[in-house]
Nucleic acid binder design. Structure first.
Lengths: 376, 376
DNA sequence: AACATTGGTGAATCACTAT
DNA sequence: GATAGTGATTCACCAATGT
């Protein structure tokens, strides 16, 4: 019997002062302008899929309106990069302002732009937690045979600052990946088939992202009820997945066509019910049990003997829940670390007791039994 | 039969004025100084494995309390991003000067530094051709369960300029990859076992790269007789592979110990061993599918019901790919074994879902469908 | 000889709470 | 803010030893 059964339901979040946020809406304007209309520290996650190419076509902010003669290729390139960098730094700064202190940022890009974005992320004060590789199971081939098949895109996951206590649902990710830690390389098909949104028979958006990608991101790094903002909303993949997973969302998008498609799509995306939303929890969210409680409750009698797995050490349980091993005494953890000369020790798994059948079992088993018996 | 045999003989090169180059030698000095001693446009490829600027905190302990041997060498320490950027731009500029017009650059890094390096590569006038993901088959886990397992590093491949007629041995790569185009994600084990160089019983260099990685790079982007320069030579992986493949090399390295180890190693010039060849020839990973992927991909919706063949038990699919059957929850395998009180259970064949025609089908059918749809 | 068990390790930005 | 206490946390591969 595992630990899972003991997990309490998600604690109810204290009424968030978010009543004035434009939740679950598309702000039909430039993303920087849109973010400026929001208060500081109100967003749990920003997911951004910014323009990749550097052919800006007047779309983006140009710090000064000077026109550069495209005589020198290198200079022209530099100007283009500088313009893109300025735009990137501007939206990243706004995004960081509206992020809560423990909020996090996801950005996706390809080799055309991701290095510039990543540098700007670091310079803006974010703290990179991982870079993630989206491996496409069905990428477009390199028709000319001149390069390697460009079969992946890169995502950056960063917290607002180095000290942030960001959300990472470790256990849910491990469960999702067949009880192995989720790695930084994800194999996910590109968006096609029924999922690919069409408008007048052609694809509605050139770079629609697969829902599976957003699903994993939101499941990993947000909690139900969190607010996710997407500055480049497009056809609303972020909104659709957020709604399904019981997260609130805010989108920024200037193109009317995209907004229409996104609104239809999200309306059709049904939220999951609460039981389906539940994910595997880490044992640390289970109520704590002090070793002394087991003694009080009679699961172990004062005077009982505890052993390490190899029976090299023997300790005696005392009435107050401390244990003594030779001259060393104290908590199960402290004695364990002292006699091993280790910096730390989890006494629950280090110490064993002799069960009625003579087998040695970790005292953590007793804790589980106690939890089962005392859970309301 | 390896791939080597398929390589065409070197096309006759126009009399190369390279008689005065320090071929197949280690220049025992700072790499910028070393490159300055070389003439313009004399190198076919630069492969660089620069310091990553890891910025590690305190010690990291494994679950068994042993200490992780961190990279704490002085050569990896930089005060600020600005210092690191200046260093990066300086060596990239020298490297570009000594590259032939059709030469190309490879750089490897992790999320700590690769974004800054990539930005500098673009700003220096190089033209990025691909970014390549080295997926590690055996990375170090994330011991604390705080992030995704950092399971890859990133390489950038760039030509000297946009107009360069760079070398890409498309046919050799396709042959190496079972007659499929070589993709931008490469699965290669980290360097260990016999290949890992030791000095006094401990690793000679903290970040020795696997020969398989260099093998693929040199095979793809150089011709026999080409000159490869490595500004951060370390223990000479680049030199060893270059020699085996009939390429000339030049290394830059300041540390005497690394130079000694590298010289011995290259002199020994071991032929590729069988295991290394195998890793290079069969880069495809086993098509393993986690149950959670089916949920992410929409093959099963959270909230869907699963049944055993006799419909005695019913379980609900949850968002993270766990299932819940009454009070029991966990993976499809664990829940199956628990409710049957069996030591183990193959969830794929035990659990069934109701197909659109009402028939009960094992979820393994979904896995097969998914594999067919996503097989790379 | 063949197989099972144990121990070691790899470019890592690796905890949280109460006092 | 610093310190101390509690206790959560690992995958693949290789080498050496044990059965």
């Amino acid at each position: 019997m595992g630990v899972i059964e003991k997990i309490r339901p998600a604690t109810v979040k204290t009424a968030a002062p978010q009543a004035d946020l434009p939740l679950n809406q598309i702000l039909k304007m430039d993303c920087i302008e849109a973010m400026r209309s929001l208060p500081d520290a109100c967003i749990d996650m920003v997911f951004a899929d910014p323009p990749y190419n550097l052919q800006l076509g007047g779309d983006l902010l140009r710090p000064d309106n000077s026109k550069v003669d495209a005589v020198d290729d290198d200079w022209d390139k530099f100007d283009t990069f500088a313009t893109y960098d300025a735009f990137t730094r501007a939206w990243l700064a706004e995004a960081r302002r509206i992020l809560k202190p423990n909020g996090s940022l996801w950005v996706i890009g390809s080799y055309h732009n991701i290095f510039r974005v990543g540098t700007a992320v670091q310079d803006a004060g974010y703290w990179i937690l991982n870079d993630i590789v989206w491996r496409k199971s069905n990428p477009m081939p390199n028709f000319k045979g001149t390069r390697f098949t460009n079969a992946h895109e890169t995502l950056i996951w960063a917290s607002k600052s180095e000290k942030s206590k960001y959300t990472f649902n470790y256990r849910a990710m491990k469960t999702l990946n067949d009880e192995l830690q989720m790695r930084s390389d994800w194999l996910i098909p590109i968006c096609g088939g029924q999922e690919r949104l069409k408008r007048n028979g052609t694809k509605a958006h050139p770079t629609q992202k697969p829902e599976a990608l957003l699903y994993r991101i939101l499941l990993a790094c947000t909690k139900p009820g969190d607010v996710v903002l997407d500055p480049f909303f497009g056809t609303g993949t972020t909104g659709a997945v957020a709604r399904r997973l019981g997260r609130d969302w805010i989108g920024c998008e200037r193109e009317d066509v995209y907004c229409e498609v996104a609104e239809e799509r999200i309306a059709a995306a049904l939220p999951l019910d609460e039981s389906a939303l539940k994910t595997m929890q880490s044992p640390k969210s289970a109520p704590k049990v002090a070793f002394g409680q087991l003694v009080e409750a009679g699961y172990l009698t004062p005077g009982a003997k505890l052993f390490d797995r190899k029976r090299q050490f023997e300790a005696v349980v005392r009435a107050d829940g401390s244990i003594a091993c030779g001259a060393v005494d104290g908590s199960i953890h402290k004695v364990g670390s002292t006699i091993q000369n280790a910096p730390s020790c989890n006494g629950w798994t280090y110490w064993h007791f002799a069960a009625s059948d003579g087998a040695m079992k970790p005292i953590d088993d007793l804790r589980q039994t106690y939890l089962l018996a005392t859970e309301p």
